[in-house]
Design a protein around this nucleic acid. Sequence first.
DNA 1: GGTATTCCCTGCGGGC
DNA 2: TGCCCGCAGGGAATAC
Length: 277
Amino acid sequence: MPELPEVETVVRALRQRLLGRVITGVRTGTARLRRSWVEDWQRELPVNRKIVALRRRGKWIIIELTGDLALLIHLGMTGRLQVVPAVQLVEAHTHLIFLLKPGTEELRFRDPRRFGAAGLIAGRDLEKFWENNLGPEPFDLTGARLFEGLRRTRRCLKAALLDQRLVAGIGNIYADEALFDAKLNPARRGTSLTRAEAAQLRRSLVKVLRRAIEQKGSTIRDYFYDETGSPGEYQNEFRVYQRNGEPCPRCRARIRQVRLAGRATHFCPRCQLFSPR
DNA sequence: GGTATTCCCTGCGGGC
DNA sequence: TGCCCGCAGGGAATAC
């Protein structure tokens, strides 16, 4: 569930607490993350590397270390990355614990559903990794590029937006919210969009994501809390997501929920009219 | 090669 | 009260 705004929120908070500190060791939990390409963390993570940068790319968190090494973390659906006192009880489903100096704190990665990922990569290989796995950031995406990407696929808009190679960082919530904002039906084929509609979709993506970042992301059930343990606020501004049966905030028609691309999809059947060319 | 579907995984809520 | 079942979803694997 953590999508671009939630990951950005985590990175901003962690940056203040991690920059300049040194990772002096690592401990692992018993259950393996399903998507981790590191076999033996104790052996593969060199100790005493300083954290020199923290940033986000799509839904990935990048912790850059001295010596051209980066720690990559994906929160999956229930992943949580927190700096806590070393004496604090280690919760169940904690997969990785990084020991930090100076101080007596640890960076812990917990992920009950294990949809997350963690690994190490040489800094010089990062760009190749992004090229193979991710499209542009929504804020760098142009309407023209989105149009070109969509016109090449017969998939519906919902499925296309969830494809991280088309645009990075979008998940189920923000795909629904952006399509509503752009007045586009999620079931429409990518090939059916006009240039103007693609440009509007890009503007809506940026608008929705910027606002969600301002609100420190969305917290549904207890899937996401920021690094300090506080929930996001954007769920209070959802216009269609999880509002099945409620009146559309634009036209008062009832919001509908269908299943598209294997995901619950929410839209207004009146103002997101299915109207391909 | 492109697209659709299934599966992984755990906690929660609803129904009985 | 306690048990069972369905649902949630990111991305890889599999099927078509």
